[in-house]
Structure formats: C-alpha cells, structure tokens
Amino acid sequence: MKSTTRGTLAAVVTGIAATVGTAGPAVAAGTVPVPVPLGGVSTALDMEVPHLAAELPLVKPGAPDGPRYVTGRLLPDRALPQLPVSGGLPGLDARSPLPHVLGDGFDHVGVDAPASDLRALAPGLSVDAPLTAPRADNFGLPQAQLPEAGVLAPVLQTVTDANLTTGPGL
C-alpha cells in the first residue's frame, strides 16, 4: 500500500472517529446544544450584547403497536396503528442587558426555558368490514352489517418549565 493511500485512509478513519466521538454525548443527552456566538459583536461595538443559547431535541421514533385481532371481526382492530414518537420541546437560555435608569451599571432580564420531554402518538385508523365472520347458525356464511370506521386521535404529552429572571450584571 502506498504511503499516500495510507495517509488518506488514516485521515478518513480519524474523521469518522471524531464524528462518532462528538455525536455520542448528544445522543445520550437527547438534546443538542446550540450556542449563538455574539462575543465578536460585543467586542466590535464595545457594549454588552444579549447572551443566547438553545437546545434542540432529538426525535426518536418508537415501535408501533401492531394490529389486534378480535374474535367476531374480519379485519383486525387498529388496521393502521399509531406510531409513538418521543422527543422534546426546544429549550432557550436568553439574557439581555437592561440599562439602569439612574446609574452606569447594567441589570439583566433573562429567560431560561430548558428543553422538556414530549411524547406523542400519531393518528391511527380502525375499520371493520361490511360482513361478519362466518357464523355456524347461518351454515358458515357471513351476514351483512354496517361498515365501521374510526380515527384514533393523536396524543401529545409534555410538562414545560420556564423561569423569568431579573438582576444585576449579565
């Protein structure tokens, strides 16, 4: 193997290892931090600027409950099952300077809303055929019945939390 090929292969393996190494903690935490760098603006304008940071949740699909077979029906219950999805609502950490009316110092106003868990179920469908199952009292033939269709409503579950703060300094 040539030395250039070996060097290229080593660079690719190093890049993959670095990518996998940084993705691990974010997946374990369930959120990806997103800082907004405003330090350069603060230096260029020579003034206090807001501090912004966010957390974006990672969406994880779950395994759907399969169709349930019910005696006396031709079609299974929940023909289109609901898909569970877990993730979260995005988080926000923002602090903005608020100048004193009577003085030189700065106060701040801040909002801290951490990312919160969110569980959801997609809508599903439950239908029944216009025929019953074969019946022994009808010589093994099905009988006619009214067709049934139902939509399983989507479900959202979450608990949110946020803090509004004021105080001295940034």
Rank of each mutant, 00 (worst) to 15 (best):
V41K: 04
P33C: 07
P142L: 05
D65Y: 04
Q143W: 00
G39D: 15
K60G: 02
L152Y: 02
V101M: 06
G88R: 07
A29Q: 14
G91S: 04
L83I: 10
H100K: 11
G124D: 09
A133G: 05
L45T: 15
T158I: 04
G7A: 15
S126Y: 01
P130S: 03
S116Y: 02
T8W: 05
P99F: 04
L152A: 14
L58K: 09
P84K: 08
G66V: 10
G124I: 11
L9D: 07
H108T: 06
P147H: 02
A23Q: 15
A162N: 07
D161R: 15
H108C: 01
R73E: 14
P37H: 06
V151S: 06
V85C: 04
T31W: 03
E148F: 13
V32Y: 09
H100I: 02
D128W: 00
G24D: 03
A28I: 10
G124F: 06
R73D: 08
P154K: 10
G30D: 08
G105L: 04
A23T: 13
G105I: 01
P134I: 12
G103E: 07
G110A: 15
L58D: 08
D93L: 08
S86H: 11
P64E: 12
D93N: 15
P123K: 13
R95H: 02
L141D: 04
P64K: 10
A115Y: 01
L9Q: 13
L146D: 04
G140L: 12
V127S: 01
V111K: 03
G66T: 14
S96R: 05
D128P: 00
T158W: 12
T8Q: 08
L156N: 01
D161Y: 09
P168S: 12
G124A: 12
S116G: 12
G169A: 07
N163K: 14
R73Y: 06
T31A: 07
G7K: 13
P123F: 09
P97T: 13
G150P: 02
D93V: 05
A54T: 07
Q143Y: 01
G167P: 07
P33K: 03
L102S: 09
M1Y: 05
M1G: 15
S3P: 04
V36C: 02
A136C: 00
V151P: 01
P154E: 10
L45S: 13
P57I: 14
S3E: 13
G21Y: 08
V49M: 09
N138D: 07
T166R: 05
Q145C: 00
P84M: 08
V70I: 14
G62A: 13
A144K: 00
T31Y: 10
V13N: 01
E48W: 02
L121I: 03
G62F: 08
G110F: 02
G150K: 12
L80H: 03
Q143A: 13
D104K: 11
L45M: 14
P114Q: 06
R119H: 13
P123G: 09
L152S: 11
T14H: 00
K2Q: 08
V34K: 03
